[in-house]
């Protein structure tokens, strides 16, 4: 089983970070993995993405051309990566930031108003974690109960005080999916 994910949006939305949390969760579960950022003259406000592969077998290329999971937090990223998603794959959209719908019909789309939900939590910058929580709850690419430890490892010591809030955001995303399923 191999899950290839691309997380894309604006720089500053925490896409590289949410990718790292996902990768670290894979590591904690003893899986093979790779994390590859887009790097370049990227900065807050520019476009940014990262590719995460979690697999039971050694990872070949760390470059993801056809993601099974696409998480997008802006419209340019949806435009760029929507055609690349593997048939039968999933697109998780922050529907408070991306207004247009997904046109592909051979993929499943999950719209989550993550930025609005994050703002309601009082932490607008944690929309990325809400989406990540939703991905994990929906697809089980890593176990939901690995997430606290993965977050703890990934969050820098300097920002340790934000751990609980991040965790809350992940749980909010998970609850959103559970609510959707019931």
């Amino acid at each position: 089983m191999t899950t290839r994910t691309i997380m894309a949006g604006f720089g500053g939305q925490g896409l590289l970070f949410s990718g790292k949390v996902l990768a670290y969760a894979g590591l904690l579960e003893g899986k093979e993995l790779s994390w590859l950022p887009s790097y370049g003259p990227e900065m807050r406000g520019g476009t940014c993405n990262c590719s995460v592969i979690i697999s039971d077998e050694p990872v070949g290329s760390p470059i993801v051309t056809h993601p099974d999971i696409l998480m997008v937090m802006n419209e340019p990223s949806l435009d760029k990566f929507e055609p690349a998603v593997a048939p039968g794959g999933f697109i998780f959209v922050d529907s408070s930031l991306v207004t247009r719908g997904v046109s592909r019909t051979d993929v499943q789309t999950v719209g989550i108003p993550a930025t609005r939900m994050a703002r309601e939590m009082g932490a607008v910058s944690l929309a990325n974690m809400i989406l990540l929580g939703a991905i994990v709850a929906k697809l089980g690419c890593v176990r939901t109960d690995t997430m606290p430890a993965a977050l703890k490892h990934t969050i820098s010591a300097r920002k340790a005080d934000l751990l609980d809030l991040n965790l809350k955001a992940v749980e909010t995303g998970m609850r959103f999916i559970k609510g959707e399923q019931t």
């Binding site: 790292k20 990768a23 093979e32 993995l33 790779s34 590859l36 950022p37 990872v59 760390p62």
Partner: peptide, 10 residues
């Protein structure tokens, strides 16, 4: 190459 420098793996 740049990819090897930037990527993360266990």
């Amino acid at each position: 190459d740049g990819t090897m420098g930037q990527m993360m793996e266990p």
